[in-house]
Amino acid sequence: MSDNSIETREAAGDAADPEFEALLERALRVPLPEEGRRRRQPEGGGLRWRWPAVAAVALLAIGVIFGTLKNSAFIPGGSLAGDVVAHINHEPRAISPRPASDVRPVSNHEVTQVLQAAGADMSDIGPIVRYAKLCPFRGTMVAHFVVQGEAGPVTVMLLPEEQVTGPVAVDEDGFVGTIVPLDIGGSIAVVGAPGESLEQIQREVAAALRWRL
């Protein structure tokens, strides 16, 4: 592999203008995204100040081991519930808290595009859709929505390839919710903050969703 110096590019006849080449390189070096994978901290962490120092050290050691084995910045992995939460953490902008008055609905056209690309159809549901995106998840493309719940954002992921035999509880990283199997195959994940009313959204989505052949 060659280096990408201006001299090398000049040798290839592509860089007769070093000033332009330097600007070009700066232009291509776009800023990196913010630390998107920064884990959301669970609420109610005040107890940690009262823990004895030895417990803190032990937790730190456990954290290091787990962090190395499981929580690397580069490799997602784990249970389905864990992967759902990891994916939610991967797109923090989608669930950024906003006052209800600032929540702008995604257009029906955009929602339809995402549904079609994900191989799904869905009739209208009550909650406002504030985020809609086609996302890679466990090797397939899935529809990832965020709807406005009563208290805040609620993530809805349509998972045609993920079969679960019964409801799977999600309770990680300050998120709670359920992954439920669908009669039509596959499953949906509905996840929000503790205290959010999720059941109604879950029922509505499950009733409105159809997979496309």
Binding site: M1, S2, N4, A12, L28, R29
Partner: peptide, 14 residues
């Protein structure tokens, strides 16, 4: 190809 050359340092052949 521009990104490959300038960012990634790929040669023309690569």
């Amino acid at each position: 190809p521009l990104a490959l050359q300038v960012l990634m340092g790929h040669t023309t052949r690569e």
